[in-house]
Simulated assay, not measured.
Amino acid sequence: MAKTLELQFGTEFGKTARIVVDNPKEPIDEAAVKQAMEQIIAANVFYTASGNLAVVKGARVVDRNVTEYEMI
């Protein structure tokens, strides 16, 4: 079972960009996540094909279960 925290940002060109954090500490502190996202935007260290990160759009925890089968 692999969980990720997906941070969703709006870019300066109106698109959505995501930053994914593996194995987030739970429970998620929503206020801390929003503050961290605002700091990421203010630091202006990430640039995407859709432009700089401009606004906080949301965050979500994605829980993914993978079952592999060995094929003989």
Rank of each mutant, 00 (worst) to 15 (best):
K3R: 14
E30G: 13
A54K: 06
G14S: 04
S50R: 07
G14H: 07
K57N: 14
L53M: 05
K15Q: 14
V62T: 15
M37E: 02
A17I: 05
A31F: 10
G58H: 04
V61N: 02
I72M: 07
K3Y: 09
E26W: 11
E30V: 14
I41V: 13
K3E: 15
N23L: 05
A2E: 13
M71R: 11
A59F: 15
Y47G: 11
I41E: 09
F9Y: 10
Y69S: 04
I41R: 00
D22P: 13
R60F: 10
G58W: 04
F9A: 02
N52C: 07
P24L: 05
L7R: 03
Q35I: 11
V62D: 05
V62Y: 03
E38L: 06
E70C: 02
M1L: 12
N65C: 04
I28A: 08
M71I: 15
V20P: 01
V21K: 06
L5D: 02
T67G: 06
E26R: 12
A42L: 10
K25Q: 13
T48Q: 06
M37V: 08
E38Q: 09
E26A: 06
K15C: 06
D29S: 08
E26F: 09
I19A: 08
T48W: 04
V21D: 00
A42M: 08
E12T: 14
T11M: 00
T67Y: 12
E6Y: 05
G51C: 09
R18E: 00
I41S: 03
V66S: 12
V33R: 05
M71V: 15
E6M: 10
V45L: 11
D22S: 15
Y47F: 06
A32R: 10
T16F: 06
I28E: 05
Q39A: 14
E68I: 10
I72K: 15
A59L: 06
F9K: 00
V61Q: 03
N65E: 14
E12R: 03
N65Q: 12
N23G: 02
V33T: 09
T4W: 02
E6F: 05
L7M: 07
L53P: 01
A17Y: 02
A49E: 07
P24I: 04
Y69W: 07
